[in-house]
Protein backbone atom coordinates (compact mmCIF):
# COMPACT_ATOMS: atom_id res chain seq x y z
CA UNK A 1 0.00 0.00 0.00
CA UNK A 2 1.34 3.37 -0.95
CA UNK A 3 1.35 6.04 1.69
CA UNK A 4 0.44 9.39 0.32
CA UNK A 5 2.69 12.23 1.39
CA UNK A 6 1.38 14.37 4.20
CA UNK A 7 1.10 17.55 2.21
CA UNK A 8 -0.91 20.60 2.96
CA UNK A 9 -3.90 21.00 0.66
CA UNK A 10 -2.77 22.94 -2.37
CA UNK A 11 -3.80 26.55 -2.60
CA UNK A 12 -5.23 28.18 -5.66
CA UNK A 13 -5.82 26.13 -8.76
CA UNK A 14 -6.04 22.38 -8.38
CA UNK A 15 -4.83 20.74 -11.57
CA UNK A 16 -5.31 17.18 -10.32
CA UNK A 17 -6.00 15.40 -7.07
CA UNK A 18 -2.63 14.87 -5.48
CA UNK A 19 -1.53 14.41 -1.91
CA UNK A 20 -5.07 13.82 -0.71
CA UNK A 21 -7.36 10.83 -0.49
CA UNK A 22 -11.00 10.74 -1.48
CA UNK A 23 -11.78 10.95 2.24
CA UNK A 24 -9.85 14.22 2.38
CA UNK A 25 -12.21 15.70 -0.17
CA UNK A 26 -15.34 14.21 1.37
CA UNK A 27 -18.13 16.71 0.89
CA UNK A 28 -21.29 16.99 2.93
CA UNK A 29 -24.07 18.01 0.61
CA UNK A 30 -27.74 18.82 0.53
CA UNK A 31 -30.16 16.95 -1.67
CA UNK A 32 -32.24 18.84 -4.17
CA UNK A 33 -35.56 20.18 -2.86
CA UNK A 34 -38.81 18.45 -3.61
CA UNK A 35 -40.92 19.82 -6.39
CA UNK A 36 -43.34 22.34 -4.82
CA UNK A 37 -47.02 21.59 -4.66
CA UNK A 38 -49.12 23.52 -7.17
CA UNK A 39 -49.53 27.13 -6.07
CA UNK A 40 -46.54 27.03 -3.72
CA UNK A 41 -43.03 28.31 -4.22
CA UNK A 42 -40.01 26.08 -3.97
CA UNK A 43 -37.82 26.25 -0.83
CA UNK A 44 -38.08 28.18 2.44
CA UNK A 45 -38.50 31.82 3.40
CA UNK A 46 -35.02 33.04 2.51
CA UNK A 47 -33.94 33.20 6.16
CA UNK A 48 -30.17 33.22 6.58
CA UNK A 49 -29.48 34.02 2.94
CA UNK A 50 -27.86 37.30 1.88
CA UNK A 51 -29.10 38.76 -1.38
CA UNK A 52 -27.27 41.73 -2.93
CA UNK A 53 -29.02 43.97 -5.45
CA UNK A 54 -26.51 45.56 -7.83
CA UNK A 55 -28.48 48.39 -9.43
CA UNK A 56 -29.48 52.04 -8.92
CA UNK A 57 -29.51 51.62 -5.13
CA UNK A 58 -32.44 50.76 -2.90
CA UNK A 59 -34.84 52.94 -0.94
CA UNK A 60 -34.56 51.01 2.31
CA UNK A 61 -37.55 52.84 3.82
CA UNK A 62 -39.99 51.55 1.23
CA UNK A 63 -42.54 49.29 2.96
CA UNK A 64 -42.22 46.66 0.25
CA UNK A 65 -38.45 46.51 0.76
CA UNK A 66 -38.51 46.23 4.52
CA UNK A 67 -35.02 47.57 5.14
CA UNK A 68 -31.56 46.61 3.96
CA UNK A 69 -28.70 45.21 6.00
CA UNK A 70 -26.11 47.31 4.14
CA UNK A 71 -25.99 49.88 1.37
CA UNK A 72 -22.95 50.91 -0.67
CA UNK A 73 -22.24 53.05 -3.71
CA UNK A 74 -19.56 52.66 -6.36
CA UNK A 75 -17.97 55.97 -7.30
CA UNK A 76 -15.46 56.94 -9.91
CA UNK A 77 -13.26 59.74 -8.63
CA UNK A 78 -11.61 62.46 -10.68
CA UNK A 79 -8.23 60.73 -10.45
CA UNK A 80 -9.81 57.72 -12.16
CA UNK A 81 -9.93 55.59 -9.02
CA UNK A 82 -13.08 53.56 -8.45
CA UNK A 83 -14.13 52.90 -4.88
CA UNK A 84 -17.00 51.21 -3.11
CA UNK A 85 -18.12 53.48 -0.27
CA UNK A 86 -20.76 52.97 2.41
CA UNK A 87 -23.82 55.06 1.66
CA UNK A 88 -23.99 58.31 3.64
CA UNK A 89 -26.80 58.65 6.15
CA UNK A 90 -28.50 61.47 4.23
CA UNK A 91 -28.38 59.65 0.90
CA UNK A 92 -31.88 58.57 -0.24
CA UNK A 93 -30.41 55.31 -1.46
CA UNK A 94 -32.04 55.18 -4.87
CA UNK A 95 -32.50 58.11 -7.26
CA UNK A 96 -34.14 56.17 -10.07
CA UNK A 97 -36.53 53.66 -8.52
CA UNK A 98 -35.38 50.61 -10.47
CA UNK A 99 -33.19 49.10 -7.75
CA UNK A 100 -36.00 49.59 -5.23
CA UNK A 101 -38.35 47.75 -7.58
CA UNK A 102 -35.93 44.81 -7.80
CA UNK A 103 -35.40 44.72 -4.03
CA UNK A 104 -39.17 44.74 -3.44
CA UNK A 105 -39.59 41.69 -5.66
CA UNK A 106 -36.82 39.79 -3.88
CA UNK A 107 -38.48 40.63 -0.56
CA UNK A 108 -41.89 39.43 -1.75
CA UNK A 109 -40.50 36.09 -2.86
CA UNK A 110 -38.03 35.55 -0.02
CA UNK A 111 -39.49 37.61 2.86
CA UNK A 112 -36.89 36.64 5.47
CA UNK A 113 -33.75 37.06 3.38
CA UNK A 114 -31.09 39.64 4.26
CA UNK A 115 -31.04 42.35 1.57
CA UNK A 116 -27.95 44.34 0.62
CA UNK A 117 -27.54 47.06 -1.98
CA UNK A 118 -24.65 48.32 -4.05
CA UNK A 119 -25.40 51.27 -6.33
CA UNK A 120 -23.70 51.32 -9.71
CA UNK A 121 -25.98 53.80 -11.49
CA UNK A 122 -26.82 57.43 -10.90
CA UNK A 123 -23.31 58.81 -11.07
CA UNK A 124 -21.68 60.19 -14.20
CA UNK A 125 -21.79 57.84 -17.14
CA UNK A 126 -18.09 58.03 -17.91
CA UNK A 127 -16.61 54.61 -17.28
CA UNK A 128 -19.96 53.15 -16.26
CA UNK A 129 -18.84 49.70 -17.45
CA UNK A 130 -15.93 49.90 -15.01
CA UNK A 131 -18.32 50.96 -12.26
CA UNK A 132 -20.65 48.05 -12.98
CA UNK A 133 -17.70 45.67 -12.96
CA UNK A 134 -16.39 47.10 -9.68
CA UNK A 135 -19.80 46.81 -8.03
CA UNK A 136 -20.27 43.23 -9.15
CA UNK A 137 -16.72 42.31 -8.12
CA UNK A 138 -17.30 43.83 -4.70
CA UNK A 139 -20.52 41.84 -4.28
CA UNK A 140 -18.85 38.59 -5.33
CA UNK A 141 -15.97 39.13 -2.92
CA UNK A 142 -18.34 39.86 -0.06
CA UNK A 143 -19.52 36.29 -0.53
CA UNK A 144 -23.21 37.15 -0.94
CA UNK A 145 -24.99 33.91 -1.63
CA UNK A 146 -27.25 35.52 -4.25
CA UNK A 147 -26.47 38.54 -6.42
CA UNK A 148 -29.23 40.16 -8.48
CA UNK A 149 -28.01 41.93 -11.60
CA UNK A 150 -30.85 43.37 -13.68
CA UNK A 151 -28.24 45.13 -15.81
CA UNK A 152 -25.78 44.25 -18.54
CA UNK A 153 -23.22 45.91 -20.74
CA UNK A 154 -22.94 45.78 -24.51
CA UNK A 155 -19.28 46.77 -24.46
CA UNK A 156 -17.22 43.80 -25.58
CA UNK A 157 -14.11 45.08 -23.85
CA UNK A 158 -15.69 44.02 -20.56
CA UNK A 159 -16.40 40.50 -21.82
CA UNK A 160 -13.24 38.89 -20.47
CA UNK A 161 -13.32 40.56 -17.05
CA UNK A 162 -16.99 39.81 -16.59
CA UNK A 163 -16.49 36.23 -17.69
CA UNK A 164 -13.70 35.72 -15.16
CA UNK A 165 -15.78 37.37 -12.47
CA UNK A 166 -18.80 35.20 -13.23
CA UNK A 167 -16.57 32.13 -12.94
CA UNK A 168 -15.15 33.42 -9.65
CA UNK A 169 -18.68 33.77 -8.32
CA UNK A 170 -19.65 30.31 -9.55
CA UNK A 171 -16.68 28.58 -7.93
CA UNK A 172 -17.04 30.68 -4.79
CA UNK A 173 -20.69 29.64 -4.35
CA UNK A 174 -22.22 33.01 -5.11
CA UNK A 175 -24.98 32.69 -7.63
CA UNK A 176 -25.25 35.65 -10.01
CA UNK A 177 -28.79 36.00 -11.34
CA UNK A 178 -28.46 38.14 -14.45
CA UNK A 179 -31.08 39.76 -16.61
CA UNK A 180 -31.11 39.42 -20.37
CA UNK A 181 -31.21 42.68 -22.31
CA UNK A 182 -34.72 43.86 -23.16
CA UNK A 183 -33.90 44.28 -26.82
CA UNK A 184 -32.22 41.89 -29.18
CA UNK A 185 -28.65 43.01 -28.62
CA UNK A 186 -25.65 41.13 -27.36
CA UNK A 187 -24.72 42.08 -23.83
CA UNK A 188 -23.04 40.53 -20.80
CA UNK A 189 -22.87 38.81 -18.31
CA UNK A 190 -26.22 37.11 -18.83
CA UNK A 191 -24.85 35.18 -21.82
CA UNK A 192 -22.45 33.21 -19.63
CA UNK A 193 -23.39 29.69 -18.48
CA UNK A 194 -21.86 30.36 -15.06
CA UNK A 195 -24.70 32.74 -14.18
CA UNK A 196 -28.45 32.13 -13.93
CA UNK A 197 -29.83 34.08 -16.89
CA UNK A 198 -33.40 35.33 -16.82
CA UNK A 199 -35.91 36.75 -19.26
CA UNK A 200 -39.59 37.50 -18.83
CA UNK A 201 -42.67 35.44 -19.67
CA UNK A 202 -46.10 37.01 -20.27
CA UNK A 203 -48.14 34.61 -18.11
CA UNK A 204 -50.13 36.49 -15.49
CA UNK A 205 -49.22 33.99 -12.73
CA UNK A 206 -46.88 36.04 -10.49
CA UNK A 207 -45.28 32.90 -9.02
CA UNK A 208 -44.48 30.94 -12.17
CA UNK A 209 -41.05 30.35 -13.54
CA UNK A 210 -40.17 28.40 -16.66
CA UNK A 211 -37.09 26.71 -18.03
CA UNK A 212 -36.08 27.65 -21.56
CA UNK A 213 -35.22 24.46 -23.44
CA UNK A 214 -33.31 26.58 -25.95
CA UNK A 215 -30.97 28.71 -23.83
CA UNK A 216 -29.70 31.29 -23.45
CA UNK A 217 -31.79 32.66 -21.66
CA UNK A 218 -32.09 29.71 -19.24
CA UNK A 219 -35.13 30.74 -17.20
CA UNK A 220 -38.20 32.91 -17.60
CA UNK A 221 -39.93 34.69 -14.71
CA UNK A 222 -42.94 37.00 -14.44
CA UNK A 223 -42.00 40.26 -16.11
CA UNK A 224 -45.09 41.74 -17.72
CA UNK A 225 -47.24 44.32 -15.96
CA UNK A 226 -45.55 43.70 -12.64
CA UNK A 227 -46.56 45.92 -9.72
CA UNK A 228 -43.27 47.14 -8.31
CA UNK A 229 -42.03 49.33 -5.47
CA UNK A 230 -40.85 52.77 -6.61
CA UNK A 231 -39.53 55.93 -5.06
CA UNK A 232 -41.26 57.66 -2.17
CA UNK A 233 -43.07 54.58 -0.91
CA UNK A 234 -45.11 54.35 -4.11
CA UNK A 235 -45.80 51.51 -6.49
CA UNK A 236 -46.27 51.47 -10.24
CA UNK A 237 -46.53 48.83 -12.93
CA UNK A 238 -43.73 48.05 -15.30
CA UNK A 239 -42.58 45.31 -17.66
CA UNK A 240 -39.22 43.87 -18.52
CA UNK A 241 -36.62 41.23 -17.85
CA UNK A 242 -35.48 43.43 -15.00
CA UNK A 243 -38.38 42.26 -12.86
CA UNK A 244 -38.28 38.59 -13.83
CA UNK A 245 -34.70 38.48 -12.57
CA UNK A 246 -35.27 39.36 -8.90
CA UNK A 247 -38.14 36.87 -8.88
CA UNK A 248 -35.66 34.12 -9.76
CA UNK A 249 -33.10 35.59 -7.35
CA UNK A 250 -35.76 35.33 -4.65
CA UNK A 251 -36.36 31.69 -5.58
CA UNK A 252 -32.62 31.05 -5.22
CA UNK A 253 -32.73 32.58 -1.73
CA UNK A 254 -35.70 30.39 -0.83
CA UNK A 255 -33.97 27.24 -2.01
CA UNK A 256 -30.69 28.10 -0.24
CA UNK A 257 -32.46 28.93 3.01
CA UNK A 258 -33.79 25.40 3.09
CA UNK A 259 -30.65 23.73 1.70
CA UNK A 260 -27.69 26.03 2.31
CA UNK A 261 -25.04 23.61 1.05
CA UNK A 262 -26.32 23.52 -2.50
CA UNK A 263 -23.70 24.54 -5.05
CA UNK A 264 -24.55 26.93 -7.89
CA UNK A 265 -24.92 24.03 -10.32
CA UNK A 266 -27.28 22.24 -7.92
CA UNK A 267 -29.20 25.46 -7.47
CA UNK A 268 -29.64 25.74 -11.21
CA UNK A 269 -30.80 22.13 -11.23
CA UNK A 270 -33.32 22.92 -8.48
CA UNK A 271 -34.67 25.82 -10.53
CA UNK A 272 -34.88 23.52 -13.51
CA UNK A 273 -36.75 20.78 -11.66
CA UNK A 274 -39.20 23.22 -10.06
CA UNK A 275 -40.00 25.03 -13.32
CA UNK A 276 -43.66 24.75 -14.28
CA UNK A 277 -42.90 23.42 -17.75
CA UNK A 278 -40.41 20.70 -16.73
CA UNK A 279 -41.95 17.25 -16.46
CA UNK A 280 -39.58 14.66 -15.07
CA UNK A 281 -40.18 11.12 -16.27
CA UNK A 282 -42.70 12.19 -18.86
CA UNK A 283 -43.07 10.53 -22.23
CA UNK A 284 -40.12 10.89 -24.58
Amino acid sequence: MTTLPDAAPPRGLTWRLTGRTPEDVRTEADALPDRPTPGALVGGSGRGVRVCVVDSGVDATHPLVGGVASAHVVRRYEDGAIRVDPLKADDPGDLCGHGTACAGIVRRVAPDCELHSVRVLGERFTGRGDVLLAGLRWAVRQGFEVINLSLSTTRTRYFEDLHALADEAYFGSSVVVASAHNTQVESFPWRFSSVVSVGSHPVSDPDMHLYNPEPPVEFFGPGVDVEVAWLGGATLRSSGNSYATPFVAGLCARILSERPRLTPFQLKHALYLSAANVHVGGSR
Binding site: G232, R237, S239
Partner: peptide, 26 residues
Protein backbone atom coordinates in the same frame (compact mmCIF):
# COMPACT_ATOMS: atom_id res chain seq x y z
CA UNK B 1 -28.77 60.24 -12.97
CA UNK B 2 -32.33 60.47 -11.70
CA UNK B 3 -35.77 59.16 -12.49
CA UNK B 4 -36.89 56.86 -15.25
CA UNK B 5 -35.04 58.73 -18.00
CA UNK B 6 -31.93 58.66 -15.81
CA UNK B 7 -32.12 54.90 -15.43
CA UNK B 8 -32.67 54.46 -19.16
CA UNK B 9 -29.68 56.66 -19.97
CA UNK B 10 -27.49 55.00 -17.35
CA UNK B 11 -28.37 51.39 -18.10
CA UNK B 12 -28.81 51.64 -21.86
CA UNK B 13 -32.05 49.68 -21.47
CA UNK B 14 -35.55 50.76 -22.53
CA UNK B 15 -38.31 50.96 -19.92
CA UNK B 16 -42.09 50.96 -19.86
CA UNK B 17 -44.10 52.05 -16.84
CA UNK B 18 -47.79 52.43 -16.12
CA UNK B 19 -50.08 53.74 -13.37
CA UNK B 20 -47.87 56.78 -12.88
CA UNK B 21 -50.71 59.04 -11.78
CA UNK B 22 -51.39 56.64 -8.92
CA UNK B 23 -47.85 57.18 -7.78
CA UNK B 24 -47.95 60.38 -5.76
CA UNK B 25 -44.24 60.94 -6.06
CA UNK B 26 -43.55 60.05 -9.66
Amino acid sequence: GQGIAGWVAGSGEPMIVDDLRRSATF
